[in-house]
Amino acid sequence: MPKLNINGKVVEVDVEDDTPLLWVIRDHVGLTGTKYGCGVAQCGACTIHIDGVATRSCALPLNAVTEEQKIVTIEGLGADKPHPVQQVWAELDVAQCGFCQVGMIMATASLLAQNPTPSEDDIRAEITNICRCGTYGRVLAGVKLASERMASNKG
């Protein structure tokens, strides 16, 4: 049976190798924070991190991931204390309905880990998640504020 390292725990799953990772995480591991939106890796609601990189899990088969790779879901992002992005999202009321925001938060956290001070163009190029409520202005403000806060905590 395949094994996965999810949020720092190795789990064994009894599923077909071509099962999308999203369904493994939700239905077999029981972590339901990651959402299903489109099923074709376009909307970003299913965004997780694999080795720190934002990855859309709905179209990624289980057999594309190894036990050595570290998978982080929204549940693992702020496991000890809320991640700075999660804190800013709550403070600025970034989410409206909230459905897509898990993916937005995961994409933002990955972006800021790789590029701590992204320009507006960088943000627009990297955060390509779709929000049906149109909270893009608040998302942009949230990314900028999280970047500032994370930078000030390092110095």
Rank of each mutant, 00 (worst) to 15 (best):
A109Q: 09
V29P: 03
A109N: 11
Q96S: 14
I130V: 10
D17T: 11
A64R: 09
L62K: 04
C97T: 13
R138V: 04
V94S: 13
S119N: 08
A95K: 08
D93R: 15
A107Q: 14
D27R: 10
H49E: 12
P84L: 11
K9M: 00
G44Q: 05
M104S: 06
K9A: 14
G103Q: 12
V143E: 00
T128G: 15
V65G: 08
D51W: 13
E120C: 03
T117C: 11
I130C: 07
W89E: 15
I130H: 03
T128I: 07
I50S: 13
P82D: 12
P20A: 00
H83W: 14
T108F: 05
Q87A: 14
R132C: 02
V139T: 09
E91N: 15
P116S: 10
A109K: 11
G98T: 08
D121C: 04
T108S: 13
D121V: 11
C38N: 02
L112K: 07
T55R: 08
Q87K: 15
C131S: 00
I48M: 10
C43W: 01
T66D: 07
L21Q: 13
T135Q: 07
A45R: 01
L77F: 11
R132Y: 04
D122F: 00
P118N: 09
D80Y: 05
E16S: 15
G76S: 10
D14V: 04
R56F: 00
H49G: 11
D27Y: 02
S57L: 08
N129H: 02
G33C: 03
I105Q: 11
C133T: 03
L140P: 01
I105Y: 12
Y36E: 05
Q96G: 09
I74C: 11
G142N: 01
Q86C: 09
A59N: 11
M106Q: 13
K81Q: 15
T47K: 10
P118Y: 08
L112D: 05
N129W: 00
Q96I: 07
W23A: 03
S110W: 14
C38S: 07
K81A: 15
V29G: 02
V88E: 14
K35H: 09
H83T: 12
D122Y: 05
K9N: 12
V65H: 07
L112I: 08
Q114V: 01
I105H: 12
I74W: 06
Q69R: 01
C46V: 04
D80L: 08
V40H: 14
R138P: 00
V88S: 13
L21P: 08
C100L: 14
R138Y: 12
T66N: 09
G52F: 12
H83S: 14
G134M: 03
Q114Y: 05
L112Y: 14
E75M: 06
D27F: 02
Y36C: 02
A141M: 05
R124C: 06
V40L: 12
A125Q: 13
R124H: 00
V29K: 06
D18K: 15
N129G: 10
C46W: 02
V65S: 02
A141I: 06
P20Y: 05
V102H: 15
V53R: 14
E75G: 02
G33V: 04
G8V: 03
D51I: 04
V11D: 03
I48S: 07
E75N: 04
V11F: 06
G8L: 03
Q87M: 11
Q96T: 06
M106G: 12
C58E: 07
D17Y: 02
A125C: 04
C97E: 03
V65F: 02
A45S: 14
Y136C: 06
K144C: 02
